[in-house]
């Protein structure tokens, strides 16, 4: 997977973590936690697909 996609996923993950710090509502926090898990999974799989040195 291209570095651009990985970078985008990293940015989204950082934004989601920031959002988690800014919300108090339990439902909204649950939403963002799921989003973070999803993004972490996608980023990990993207890293796994990367070129091996």
């Amino acid at each position: 997977m291209s570095n651009e996609i990985k970078e985008t996923l990293r940015e989204k993950l950082a934004q989601a973590r920031d959002t988690l710090d800014e919300v108090n509502d339990p439902a909204a926090r649950a939403f963002v936690r799921v989003e973070i898990e999803e993004l972490e999974g996608r980023l990990l799989s993207a890293m796994g697909d990367g070129p091996k040195s």
């Binding site: 710090d21 800014e22 909204a28 963002v32 989003e35």
Partner: peptide, 18 residues
């Protein structure tokens, strides 16, 4: 100390991100 994000701000941010 963080200023809580209001609901509309949250909705807009998540919608754009996803």
């Amino acid at each position: 100390v963080i200023m809580p994000l209001n609901e509309e701000g949250f909705v807009a941010r998540v919608a754009i991100r996803n």
